[in-house]
Computed example of a mutant assay.
Amino acid sequence: MQGIRPVGREASSRKYDLLSALMAHGLAGDKHRQRLVLRLMALITTRYNWQRDELTVGQAEIARLWSVDERTVKRDMARLRDLGWIVVKRPGARGRVSVLGLAFDRILLDTRPAWPNIGPDFVARMGGAGPEQAGAGEDSTVIPFRRPRPAATGSGPWAAACALLAAEDAPVFDAWLAPLTEAGIEGGQLVLLAPSRFHASYVLANLRERLVTALRRADPSLAGVTVRA
C-alpha cells in the first residue's frame, strides 16, 4: 500500500490521493459517516499544516467552521481519535490548544475498500490492487509465506479484533498477528503472548497502533495492549 508523503516530490498529488480516498469512503458510508468525513476534510483543507503534520485549532474555531456547537465538536473529535485517524501529538496545557496529527496509514487502511469506486488507476497508483499486496510494501521484513489462520472463536475483544485486522491487511495479520494468543486483561490492557521475544518486539515496534485501534473498536473500555514473549 502506497503511503502518503506530506512533503517532498509528488507531495501535491499525494495530498489529493488522501482526500480522494476519504471522499470515496465517506460517499460509500451512511449519512453519519459522510458527515464525519466531510468535517475532517474541512479541517484538513483549511487548518492542517502538511509540512509539520500538525492540526492546531481550538474547539470554538472548529465549531464555527462546522456550523455546530462545541459539544458536537468534542463528540466528533473523540470519534476521529477512536478511529485512529487523528492522534494527539501534544496535549493542550495552560490555555494552549492540543497539537494533533493525522494517522495516514490508518486512514488508508480504513478507506481502501472504497478505492475501486474511484477507478482502477487510483487502486494501482496506491498499491492496493489485491489483498496479497496490501502489506508487502510496508516493511521488507514481513514473512512472505502464509501461516494457518486460526478461527476467531468466541465473542471476546481479541476475536473481534482479529476479524478486523485480518480483513484490513491479510498478509501482515497472517505473518505477525495470527500467532499471538490472548492471555487475559491486566489493568485495562489486553495481554497477548508472542511465540518469541523478537516477535513480541517487532509487533510492539511496528504494529502496536493497529492493535490498539482494532481492540478499541472491538471494546472501547480497553486502554491498550501488552505483548509478551
Rank of each mutant, 00 (worst) to 15 (best):
Ala166Phe: 10
Glu132Ser: 09
Pro171Phe: 05
Gly137Thr: 14
Val97Leu: 06
Ile107Thr: 03
Ala136Leu: 12
Ala183Cys: 11
Gly127Val: 08
Ala134Pro: 00
Ala151Arg: 13
Arg106Pro: 05
Arg147Asn: 04
Glu186Asp: 13
Phe122Gly: 00
Glu132Tyr: 06
Ala103His: 09
Ala152Glu: 12
Leu164Asp: 07
Leu109Arg: 14
Ala134Arg: 10
Ala134Asp: 10
Pro150His: 02
Pro131Ala: 05
Thr141Ala: 14
Gly95Leu: 11
Ser140Arg: 15
Phe173Thr: 08
Gly187Pro: 01
Ala151Thr: 13
Pro113Met: 08
Ile143Trp: 14
Arg106Gln: 15
Arg94Tyr: 13
Leu100Lys: 06
Val172Gly: 00
Thr111Gly: 08
Ser98Val: 15
Thr181Val: 15
Ala129Asn: 05
Arg106Ala: 14
Pro144Phe: 07
Arg147Lys: 06
Met126Tyr: 02
Thr111Lys: 07
Ala163Arg: 11
Ala129Pro: 00
Pro116Asp: 12
Leu108Asn: 04
Gly135Val: 11
Thr181Ala: 14
Asp169Arg: 09
Val142Asp: 11
Glu186Leu: 09
Thr181Lys: 13
Arg147Thr: 03
Arg147Ala: 06
Leu109Glu: 11
Thr141Gln: 13
Gly137Phe: 12
Pro144Tyr: 07
Ile143Val: 14
Phe145His: 12
Arg106Val: 11
Cys162Val: 00
Ala166Val: 02
Ile185Cys: 08
Ala163Ile: 02
Gly184Ile: 02
Ala175Phe: 12
Gly156Asp: 15
Gly95Thr: 10
Arg96Gly: 02
Leu164Pro: 00
Asp174Leu: 13
Ser98Ala: 15
Ala124Arg: 15
Phe122Tyr: 06
Val142Tyr: 04
Ala183Tyr: 01
Pro120Ile: 05
Ala129Gln: 09
Ala152Gln: 09
Glu182Cys: 08
Ser98Met: 12
Trp158Lys: 07
Ile118Lys: 03
Pro171Leu: 04
Phe104Thr: 05
Val142Gly: 01
Val142Ser: 04
